[in-house]
Design a protein around this nucleic acid. Sequence first.
DNA 1: AACTAGGGCAACCGCATCTTC
DNA 2: TGAAGATGCGGTTGCCCTAGT
Length: 302
Amino acid sequence: MRKMEGKKEEIKKGPWKAEEDEVLINHVNRYGPREWSSIRSKGLLHRTGKSCRLRWVNKLRPNLKNGCKFSSEEERTVIELQSEFGNKWARIATYLPGRTDNDVKNFWSSRQKRLARILHNSSDASSSSFNTKSSSSSHRTKGKNVKPLPQSFNPSQGFGVVEEEDITVSSSSKIFPYSTDDHVDDETLRLPDLGIKLEHQPFAFGTDLVLAETSSFFSESQQPNITFSPDSRELLARLDDPFYYDILGPPDSSEPLFALPQPFFEPSPAPRRCRHVSKDDDVFLDDFPADMFDQVDPIRSP
DNA sequence: AACTAGGGCAACCGCATCTTC
DNA sequence: TGAAGATGCGGTTGCCCTAGT
């Protein structure tokens, strides 16, 4: 702050120029990746030390995979590690050579946004068929011409509200507000269309568990055409393990669960519990595994 | 061709932690 | 031992590009 007392120090912000990069690289070559603040104090650049460090770490460091999309292997790694560590991007990035914490963070953020949009559209679509058995064609919508989701449903009608401390998610949570006789449309997102029965299953469960529940929930005539990826099948096989559900801990446990052996879809160290369904869609998304749709193969159109 | 929504990405901000004096 | 500065990290913002309408 003392520096600010004299002439007003001009700190440059915004995109980096090639000349600035060159200066920064030269500095690192000479002194190593440290003493970032000295870059400004020496008058080499009018950037803060933080800015210099960030530029080096995210763009100029050798062996970075700049402009290269995440491979499926990297995606899987991120998903698994995120479920294990939570949003510890720097830590996760150490498992991904050539990737920075910013890369991982951006990747995850994009993914979350995509999921949120999908869920939102799906939720909207569902509301248009609420209590309207003949309205199955409205599932075809992709976020258009849909009514807002009712804030509360009658569980007896196949809908319901997840109350605070309520660990039972019936088929009627806001996430899956579908009546079992809703038509499963091939153009809409599969999962929420399935009328899923999710009793005693916190939101943290992944798609595969959900689908496993689903398969026993539908009558034979209602069985949707679901295909499973090899990974999904593997996970489904784990359902035979009687202790598998226990990894989530007791429903009212306030202890974090991440210390326990985890499958790869435990997204947050926060205790998994169903929260009150808010009007704000984003709230429930926080409790949702972002990779919930990843292992669902598309349903073939008839 | 113009407009819009969504995705990807770079960079900034605020806070936490570490290091140095 | 405490204060100040440096560094690290996660969240957020804003810009640009592209595809769809």
